[in-house]
Structures are given as structure tokens and as C-alpha cells.
């Protein structure tokens, strides 16, 4: 029974061999870049050059001397709050609507339909909306003119005051299929007895939602909040494809600003510092969320 540690390691050597490929990939392509990103954020570093260690100067510059970065943080906050409303709020509404439909056929149809935004490549939707917003030939302005609202037409993605809202309100009606499916799975997992006994106690409609269903899908909602915040902080492919951060940096988000610094003006150390700030924001948001939103058990 009393084997030494070495004997146990030798006996289970297959176990190590099986995780070696995984660890090799993770060390090279995940751990090394992550550590290197943290380290390089303290350098004045251009591609190809060794770079000078400058301590926390990059971070000081970000928060005291970089108006574009501050604006990008504000845009990020605005977009993330909006994504929370759309991906968590609206999706909960849609999931509850689908869940309460009695006709199995139409219920199945709507559930299947929610897959649509997932199987259409994200870039196709982004590019279609870029076209919809086009100032001269886009259908949005055409519709506005058609109903007699000429004054409301805009160069949606080219006017600094409006562009960020155009990016934000793309993909109308903003339904996120994955969120709806996750919430539906949660709703369907609620035991029938609980809902029925609630109904006997007079909990129907809003009260059924407020006191029975919502508390029992807090787990799913919590998961969606974490995922949405992580995504909202990181996401910049929509901005990249629609405006590249312009006009005059009005749609800049941290990811886009990091991209610009790293690959357009070759300030790699400074860009790494932006990456570190984004990492810290997601970390704090996730920890807070895990701590303060508790799920209910039945």
C-alpha cells in the first residue's frame, strides 16, 4: 500500500503522457503570450527592437494623457450595458414568450428560428448592416424618406455623434439566439410541480415570472451576464469592420485602440498595456458577478 511518490508517478505515467501535448500547446501559445503580455506592458517596445523598461509609464499615459483611450472606455461601457440589455433582458423576454407557447409545433419552430443568428456568419450580418446604414443607397435612409422623414436621414456611420449608436443598434431586433436557447433550457428544466403549485397559490402571469421562473433561472442569467461582460469588453470586430474606430475616433473601443497601436503605429508595449487593462476589467467584473449574484436551488 505504502508506495513512494516516485512509484505512483511511474505507475501513472500514461496519465502524464496524455496531457503532455495539451500542456505543450498551452505553454507555447497561451501561457507564454499571457506572461509576455503582462511583462511587455511595462516596455517602450516597437516590433523588432528590444525595447526599454519604463515601469508603469504606459499605464500612467493611458489614464492621464490619452483622451482616445478614455473615450474608448466610455464607448465600451455604453456598448456593454447595451449588450446586457439586449442579450440578457430582451432574450429573457423572448425565452419566456417561447416557453409559454402551448402549441408544440409553433414552439419548435420559434426555438429552431433562434438558431438563425448563430448560423449566419457574424461578419455577414455586420457587413449587411454596414450596407443598411449606407448614407446614399442604404435601405434605412430609403425607408425614412419613404415615410416622409427626410430630416431624420443621416450618414449613420460617418457622423461622429451618431456612429457609435449605429454600431450599437446594429442587428435590430437584437435577439441573441444563444442566450435565448440557454434561457429556454433553464426554463424547461424547472419541474412542472413547482409551477403548478405556484398556480394553485394564485401566481400566474407576471407573478409566476417574478417569483417562480426568474429565481430558478438565476444560474443561467448569471452565466449570461458573465459571458456578455467578457464579450462586451473584448469585442471589436464589429467596430473594426464597420468604422475602424472612426470618424475621428468616435467609435473607438479598447480592443480597436490596442489593434491600432500595435499594428498601425507599432507601439507594441503600449498596446500590451491596453490588453492588460482589458484583462483586469473582465477579471474584476467576473469576480464581482460570481460573488454577488447568487442562484436559487429548488
Amino acid at each position: 500500500m505504502n508506495k513512494t511518490l516516485w512509484e505512483r508517478i511511474w505507475e501513472t505515467r500514461t496519465g502524464y503522457l496524455m496531457v503532455v501535448p495539451t500542456l505543450a500547446f498551452l505553454l507555447v501559445f497561451q501561457y507564454y503570450p499571457a506572461v509576455s503580455g503582462l511583462y511587455r506592458s511595462m516596455f517602450d517596445w516597437n516590433a523588432g527592437l528590444a525595447g526599454n523598461f519604463i515601469g508603469l509609464s504606459n499605464f500612467v499615459e493611458l489614464f492621464t494623457d490619452d483622451d482616445v483611450f478614455i473615450r474608448s472606455l466610455k464607448n465600451m461601457a455604453l456598448l456593454t450595458i447595451w449588450y446586457l440589455v439586449a442579450f440578457v433582458g430582451l432574450s429573457t423576454g423572448v425565452a419566456v414568450l417561447i416557453h409559454r407557447i402551448r402549441n408544440e409545433g409553433s414552439k419548435y419552430f420559434f426555438r429552431l428560428f433562434m438558431i438563425l443568428p448563430v448560423i449566419i456568419p457574424a461578419v455577414v450580418l455586420i457587413l449587411l448592416w454596414k450596407f443598411i446604414y449606407d448614407s446614399t443607397i442604404g435601405p434605412l435612409n430609403a425607408i425614412l424618406i419613404g415615410v416622409g422623414l427626410q430630416d431624420w436621414t443621416h450618414a449613420w456611420l460617418a457622423e461622429p455623434k451618431i456612429a457609435i449608436y449605429a454600431v450599437m443598434f446594429r442587428n435590430f431586433p437584437w435577439i441573441d439566439g444563444v442566450s435565448v436557447l440557454i434561457l429556454l433550457a433553464g426554463l424547461q428544466a424547472i419541474p412542472v410541480e413547482i409551477v403548478e403549485s405556484g398556480l394553485l397559490d394564485g401566481a400566474s402571469g407576471w407573478r409566476r415570472l417574478r417569483y417562480i421562473e426568474l429565481p430558478l433561472i438565476t444560474g443561467q442569467i448569471k452565466l449570461l451576464i458573465v459571458l456578455t461582460i467578457m464579450w462586451g469588453v473584448q469585442e471589436y470586430s464589429a467596430v473594426w469592420a464597420m468604422t475602424q474606430g472612426g470618424p475621428i475616433d468616435s467609435t473607438q473601443v479598447p480592443g480597436m485602440w490596442m489593434y491600432f497601436n500595435a499594428f498601425r503605429i507599432s507601439r507594441m508595449g503600449y498596446a500590451s498595456a491596453i490588453g492588460v487593462v482589458m484583462f483586469l476589467i473582465t477579471l474584476v467584473a467576473t469576480i464581482l458577478n460570481m460573488r454577488y449574484i447568487r442562484s436559487q436551488e429548488y
Partner: peptide
């Protein structure tokens, strides 16, 4: 320990590794 070392990477976002990954 090894499992948590793998799991911890779930918390590392792509934004932190974008620039160093490119250089790598």
C-alpha cells in the same frame, strides 16, 4: 494542480495575448 492550471486559462482573454501571440 495541472487541471486548475489548464482551467485558469479560461480567464485569460484574447485581448491580453493578441500582441504577444502575433510576435510569437
Amino acid at each position: 494542480f495541472v487541471f486548475y492550471a489548464v482551467l485558469a486559462l479560461m480567464m485569460v482573454p484574447a485581448s491580453l495575448t493578441l500582441v504577444p501571440s502575433f510576435v510569437l
